[in-house]
């Protein structure tokens, strides 16, 4: 067991432990903060696995953007500050399926890799990744930019009730409903 293995084990334990808290906690906001810990530990694993660019992109996009969006959504849906008891369904099937999937995949991978050892490659720089992205993978890269644009437009159209074919009707309906529920 080398230092790399010990580091990977520690970071993996942190990631799995905080993931358990994400799916088990009763506090909505804390679930988002535990998600930050989990994603940060994963970014550390990427660093150890010599994938520096992916690690920093993970920190930038996941921790910086996705979690902030999730916390905004938690607050915009008026989540209670304290613990709430109605977050979970009664879930033996969920535990059965989730545990089955997780432990089954783990058993499969343990059986495939046993305790074999692999030499880590040299720490790569962003330059080599960039050469590959703009060389062999340039078409998917461009398609991805189109996808991001369409997702952006889709999110805007979804969240603005005054765009779309049945605009005045839905707007009035939503207003009445909101008035009725409050």
């Amino acid at each position: 067991m080398t230092a790399v293995d010990a580091l990977l084990l520690a970071l993996g334990a942190v990631a799995v432990g905080s993931a358990v808290l994400v799916v088990a906690t009763r506090h909505l906001v804390r679930a988002g903060l535990y998600l930050v810990v989990c994603l940060g530990a994963l970014a550390g694993m990427y660093l150890v696995l010599s994938a520096e660019l992916v690690a920093w992109v993970q920190v930038l996009i996941y921790v910086g953007a996705v979690v902030v969006l999730l916390l905004f959504a938690v607050m915009l849906t008026r989540a209670p500050i304290g613990a709430s008891d109605d977050l979970d369904r009664p879930g033996w099937p969920a535990a059965l399926i989730g545990g089955g999937v997780g432990l089954g995949l783990a058993a499969l991978l343990v059986d495939a890799y046993r305790w074999t050892k692999v030499e880590l490659p040299d720490a790569g720089t962003a330059e080599r990744i960039g050469e590959q992205v703009f060389g062999s993978w340039v078409l998917p890269f461009e398609v991805l930019s189109v996808l991001l644009l369409s997702a952006l437009v889709g999110a805007i159209v979804l969240s603005r009730p005054d765009i779309g074919s049945s605009a005045p009707k839905t707007r009035d309906g939503a207003g009445q409903e909101r008035g009725a529920t409050r």
Binding site: L9, G91, G102, L109, R114
Partner: peptide, 20 residues
């Protein structure tokens, strides 16, 4: 580096995601 450590971590994380 033992590749089984990150692989098992990933499998457990996936199972937790399915459960959630």
């Amino acid at each position: 580096m033992r590749p089984v450590i990150p692989y098992v971590t990933a499998a457990l994380l996936f199972g937790l995601g399915v459960y959630g």
